[in-house]
């Protein structure tokens, strides 16, 4: 069990999401930064999509009731284990009774706390992800509170030793970002000038940002006619433009359908960059083609495969060492 000593700002159990039920209006939810979730899990000796805790800006404090191999990845929230600093993308052995605490958010917004065996809350529709708006998944469908205790699952694989990614090895996380987008599905609802504004502006992230969507501020994007379309399906990454001309980027908790014109869709691998941006940060959109987005997806998979191999090698080596003794 992991006990929540201090809950932080918004800590929820998340995994790789709950696909398969969008036709019933069920948002996919899951980790906002899927790459950081996968990295934390691999470092902790789990499958990349296992359930972990998503921390938001203020990471709170956690006590390990039993010894555990755990990992953090994603935003740098100044993690310490019993007072000793931990690198932002690393795994560590937490002794029974030890306290993992977080301090200032130095870079990025969302960090993932993974523990070997995964967070073992009961799955709902195939996923442990928390979707708070319908009180689904996670721990009672809600954000974690002080006094909560999280069950930890039985580990499958051989434990890797603690590892830390060097500063040059970690994916970018936090601050301004250039987000690749594929124009459409409704770019024909915008004037040429409107599309130029969309692609040419340094958009400011507003405080109206959460797991459902990020409202951006800048000059209005001109539409042809109105912003309303007949309600149709939307995916995380879709950028809707409301009647005010301002964009809203849909995030993982977004509704399954929406009624505003969608000018573009953020390429899958770049959505995490927006999830790690905070109010005041500036983001730009850059049009890309299918081939470029698919190449980015391949590069992301390759990075994770590389990390998985490194962890497996380390685990094998360690076991070999133990046998030799």
């Amino acid at each position: 069990m992991i006990a929540v000593v201090k809950p932080g700002l918004l800590c929820t159990v998340q995994d790789a999401g709950r696909p398969g039920f969008r036709a019933f209006g069920m948002p996919v939810a899951g980790a906002m930064d899927r790459l950081a979730l996968a990295a934390a899990n691999l470092l902790a000796g789990n499958e990349p999509g296992a359930a972990a805790v998503e921390l938001t800006l203020a990471g709170g404090a956690w006590r390990f009731e039993a010894p555990a191999l755990a990992a953090v990845a994603g935003a740098d929230l100044s993690a310490t284990l019993d007072g000793s600093p931990l690198p932002a993308w690393s795994s560590f052995l937490a002794p029974a009774g030890s306290t993992l605490a977080f301090g200032a958010a130095r870079a990025g917004v969302r960090a993932y706390l993974a523990v070997r065996g995964g967070v073992a809350v009961p799955p709902v529709l195939g996923s442990r992800s928390t979707y708070t708006r319908a009180a689904v998944g996670g721990l009672e469908g809600r954000a974690l509170r002080a006094g909560d205790r999280l069950p930890v699952g039985r580990p499958a694989a051989r434990p890797p030793p603690p590892l830390a990614l060097g500063p040059g090895e970690t994916p970018p996380c936090g601050g301004g970002a250039r987000l690749r987008v594929l124009l459409g599905p409704q770019e024909d609802r915008f004037t040429e000038e409107g599309i130029a504004t969309f692609l040419g502006t340094a958009w400011k992230v507003t405080p109206q940002n959460d797991r459902m969507g990020y409202r951006l501020d800048g000059p209005p994007v001109r539409l042809r006619g109105g912003a309303d379309v007949l309600t149709d399906p939307i995916l995380p990454g879709a950028v809707q433009v409301t009647g005010s001309g301002l964009p809203i980027a849909m995030m993982v908790d977004c509704h399954t359908a929406g009624g505003y014109a969608k000018i573009a869709t953020i390429a899958g691998p770049d959505l995490r960059l927006l999830a790690q941006a905070r109010a005041g940060d500036e983001v730009r959109f850059a049009a890309c083609r299918q081939a470029e987005a698919v190449a980015a997806l391949r590069a992301e998979r390759a990075w994770l495969d590389g990390l998985a191999r490194r962890v497996a090698r380390a685990a094998g080596g360690r076991a070999g060492l133990r046998r030799a003794r």
């Binding site: 696909p19 969008r22 036709a23 007949l230 149709d232 399906p233 939307i234 359908a257 698919v294």
Partner: peptide, 18 residues
């Protein structure tokens, strides 16, 4: 094809581009 999502007049087809 990973998932299909119907709405009033459109169908969203979600697929694995790899």
């Amino acid at each position: 094809v990973l998932e299909v999502v119907p709405s009033y007049a459109s169908l969203l087809v979600i697929f694995d581009p790899l």
